[in-house]
Structure formats: structure tokens, C-alpha cells
Amino acid sequence: MIRLCDVHKSFGGNHVLRGVDLGVERGQSMVIIGGSGTGKSVVLKCILGLIRPDAGRIEVDGRDVTQGDRDDFLAKFGMLFQGAALFDSLPVWQNVAFRLLRGRGKRPRAEAREIAVEKLRRVGLGPEVADLLPAELSGGMQKRVGLARAIAADPAIIFFDEPTTGLDPIMAGVINELIREIVAEMGATTVTITHDMTSVRAIADRVAMLHRGKIRWTGPVEEMDAARDPYVDQFISGRAEGPIETLR
């Protein structure tokens, strides 16, 4: 469903992606792991067209992402951003129903609100939250609202950018569980980027490790611990010693 072939991206002299090859099948939950600054977010942004790759090809459903109608393409996607990226000036329900209130998929306001409240309920938030502003919510609640917004238009593909960063372990567990449940219900294809190994084990069908701008290892999550790759081994065990250079 999603295929990246030899994707390169540099920012000035910083070569972030140096030939990324990756495939994600329909209905699969792919988790990309890797250290900070290895370009995990850049991969997602390249797929979405938020960043234009310098070279390589990205296909979704067999079509080059740079071709065809952009709105149709983006309508397939939902995304949960690292900091939730909720719109400060809009109440929660309008954040969730943003896509339903504008553009081609526009619905009547009352219906959009109803859908938003239902999606909020799905992520464990009551209707009393609907009229609050994002600044009035805790970090965990903001993540849930971001998740509700990502699933509001029932997209076929959902991206999760560090879904548990900044949350306490219990809230992180709740978010992981929600993601797993919702994805199973919707049958969506997902790509998650994270360095939280608990999330990886909770969410992933397959795991890909990005290191030095390339996919270093990829395989089913069950095989991750047995992968005889020193980089993967160091990363999942969280050791400072190993082939991955660390700053001290």
C-alpha cells in the first residue's frame, strides 16, 4: 500500500535520508524506530508531501504521491502529531471535526459536532470536553483529542508521530491500547514512529529501524528481539555501549 524506493532528503549539508526503502502492506501496523534526529518524522512528512524528497519514489496504492489530486490523496490520511498540534483558537469539537466542517467532505455543523462527540467518546473523553479550548486540557487529553481528530474522517491510513512522548507510563499505556483497538476496528494501515519500546511492542505488526538515513533492519515485531543486528540490539536494550554512537 505504501512504498518508498531509494528516498533521499538533505537539509543543507545534513543528509537525513540516504536511500530509504520501505514497504507497508494494507491493514498493517508498521512502527519505525530509531534515535533522535535520524529522520523518522521526515519519512512521514515526505509521504504526506509536507517535505519534498530530493530523490526517490514514494507510492501509495501504486500511485506516485506527487501525481493526481492532492485533496483526494490527503483524504486517505489521518495523523496524530507529536505535540497533538491542536488549533489553539478552536474548541475541541471543532478541532476533531475540522475536516468535516470544510472542503469537499463538508457536513452540516450539527452533524459534524455529533461525529466529533462520538469520536471523543471513542477515545475516552466525555461530551463536556467538546466545548473546551485545547489549552484547558492536560497533555494526555490533548493526545486523545489529536487521536480523535486523526480518526474523525475514517481514513484508510493513519500516521502516529511519537504518540506517547511526554506522557506518564499509565497514560502512554492507555494511548497505546486505544491506538491498537481503533486501528483494529477501522482496519486502517498505520505507520508509527517512536523510541518508546513499550509502544513498539503494543502497536507494531512490523518494525523498521532507521539509522544513518537508511532502513537498517525490518521484520515482524516478534522477531525483533532475536534480530542479530547489533544496532537493533543496542537500541531495544537501551545500552549506551554499542555501534550506535552516543554523546556523553
Binding site: L74, F77, G83, R99, G103
Partner: peptide, 17 residues
């Protein structure tokens, strides 16, 4: 600028806006 640094601009794009 705040919307840009908090990825709200990117969020707008992903929401077809």
C-alpha cells in the same frame, strides 16, 4: 509562527486545508 513551530501548519495540510 507559533502554529508553524507547533506543527499546526502541517496539521492543516494533512486536513486538506
Amino acid at each position: 509562527a507559533t502554529m508553524k513551530v507547533t506543527e499546526q501548519i502541517d496539521a492543516l495540510v494533512t486536513l486538506s486545508t
